[in-house]
Design a binder for these strands. Structure first.
Lengths: 352, 352
DNA sequence: ATTAGCACTCTTAACCTAAGAGTGCTAATG
DNA sequence: CATTAGCACTCTTAGGTTAAGAGTGCTAAT
């Protein structure tokens, strides 16, 4: 069902006013704030319709209306009046991130700090999946007989390390041979590409009986395995305490629980990784009971056209979307730009 | 001023009852709960004295008494009735940590999770200062001309990496020479020891004009520099929402702010790193206005007699000390034990 | 189609009151 | 002389009542 112009106008006014005040919105207020020039009585009729279609609802008989999830969704799906971020904020982000230097983890961490402080909401920045990134160098270090640490340096300065158990008769010299081999033959490929190669070789190797060769492959396979170690940089958790009352205390607690369960969190954010652009998850809509009353706004950052990670904020459903959406969007864009620069060796003349 | 037996008894009863109920404690209650066999009237006299000396205080005229920071401190400084942790919990910690394998970061992270879940409080585990740990291997990787990543693997599997800018004419082959040299000559020393050596060599080198040699030293110096990268594993933040009302909301918010300001947090915990054993910081006592009403219990974990890191919890001042102190203490002990095992190559026959 | 008017509902804040918890003091007690 | 019973007093809290006010939906007038 679509809304006609007047209905949409009323709905938008209700949403905006509710975002601003957090209070149920009455017909009087809508009459004043909208530019429809209708009397409250007429507005009431329209609001009755909107309630019928459950875009808005009444907390109780004599209260004004509050937008439902459906109402918010309609508001968000319509092109809305974004306030473009002031130039100086954009500059601040750029310069602040440039200062960090060509170090991806620090860049992401800093981006998270910036985003939370300009949005006044909890920010999340998730590290890239390593799968589609090329790697630069691999090293195996014998921690002690039977135990090896593999260190995989990705372009952009991400490092992935892993402790791997191996046959006890593998020596440092063997490890050096392995790593030399891998560095020579596979360097510059993505992890995914390497994995495919290795699996092929393993099939062949099974027919041979070269023990050492098989060990090498096993070691390589483990090192390049898709690691479950994507990190999430979380900042600004204290913003969740903005205008809160006892009622949402238990809901806030759920948010904090969610933030600590990284696997759940990743699942939530992965939902949106596929979408090409900014996406909004309304907790009430989905079956994320942890997020009722909260909304997640995410925007992917990309490298060479692939979305590899996410920039997000978590805030109350009644947050100031016009301000925050551009903030998330811009942060993701700048991050993509900087990533591009790091990977293309541009604009970064080293650290101070 | 010291308390006599009876005064101490009354104070303890007040503290315990307050911890249990969170409510001001009246003379009736003390008369019942203490084993003094005195009438409420007599208790009232004693409580008046304790109030005089400000061990306890009255929220208002007709209310019972609440322990002050001084009262809590007296309670904590006296040897108190610890409930030793049940055997099975100790076992659970040990086995759960053993399962992680000889990987220090993961071990610490897991320890933090365990501690928060058995204490029902926010837990903090701070990673070791690398300064007094021996290192195993160093590697330099040329990210691109003029930019090197150094990777320093410590015993126990900590990795410290850093992006360092260098002269543009340093090549991969040079880097290999550098790292070989360092690995041969300094391996097995602590970072602190290496730094001292390097500074000495730099003094000598200044008089020479071997450009390459000087570069190598600069690179080494940066790599072994005391990094500001001690991490803190935080878990169980949602426990802060236990029995909370609007009054402490703003205080809770301060705690969350503190948790995100890692530098402040480290300063707080470093206070206690020197003390040989478990220590308790009452927020009200110190000038940590972020922590009024909260208390930090910390216990250091050690390697070869040196305290290298901390295990802590943050909880309300009225928490169950008898249960939680042993939990913190035990976790730190087990961690020390496991560290010892990792470093001595004992008890760890690799991963599954 | 729009709106003024109106009766109705429900929440909220303010006020009052009674109950109850706890105190400190005094005088009695063993 | 330490202890305790008794009591008047204070202050908080919960409950109940009330009045104000916000907002509604309906009806009838424009």
């Amino acid at each position: 069902m679509n809304l006609d112009q007047r209905q949409a106008d009323v709905l938008f006014t209700v949403v905006k006013s509710y975002i601003q005040s957090g209070l149920p919105v009455g017909s009087r207020t809508v009459a004043r704030k909208s530019n429809l020039n209708l009397s409250p009585a007429s507005i009431r009729n329209i609001m009755a319709d909107l309630t019928e279609e459950s875009y808005i609802e009444q907390p109780h008989t004599s209260a004004g209306r509050v937008p439902t999830a459906k109402g918010f969704r309609y508001y968000l799906d319509s092109k809305l009046d974004m306030e473009p971020l002031p130039r100086e904020i954009e500059q601040k982000i750029k310069s602040s991130l440039a200062k960090v230097g060509p170090d991806l983890p620090r860049t992401l961490s800093q981006a998270s700090k910036l985003l939370s402080s300009i949005s006044n909401q909890i920010s999340l920045v998730i590290t890239p999946s390593h799968q589609n990134i090329r790697w630069k160098h691999i090293d195996f270090i014998l921690l002690r007989p039977g135990l090896v640490m593999s260190i995989l340096v990705m372009e952009g300065g991400m490092v992935q390390n892993k402790v791997i158990s191996v046959d006890r008769d593998i020596m440092t010299d063997d490890l050096i041979k392995f790593s030399n081999y891998l560095n020579e033959h596979y360097q510059g490929k993505t992890l995914l590409q390497v994995r495919v190669s290795i699996y092929e070789q393993m099939k062949i190797a099974q027919r041979q009986f070269n023990q050492l060769y098989q060990s090498a492959l096993r070691l390589a396979r483990e090192s390049f395995e898709p690691e479950n170690n994507r990190q999430v940089y979380v900042d600004g958790t204290h913003y969740l305490f903005q205008d809160t009352d006892l009622a949402n205390l238990s809901k806030m607690r759920e948010v904090f629980k969610l933030l600590e369960e990284r696997s759940k969190l990743l699942k939530l954010l992965d939902q949106t990784l596929e979408s090409k652009s900014l996406s909004i998850i309304l907790g009430q809509e989905q079956d994320w009971e942890e997020l009722s009353d909260y909304t997640v706004i995410s925007s992917p950052y990309s490298l060479k056209g692939d979305n590899i990670g996410m920039v997000s904020i978590i805030g109350p459903t009644r947050m100031n979307y016009s301000r925050i959406i551009p903030a998330v969007d811009l942060t993701a864009r700048i991050l993509s730009q900087i990533l591009h620069d790091i990977y293309e060796y541009k604009n970064h003349e080293g650290l101070a």
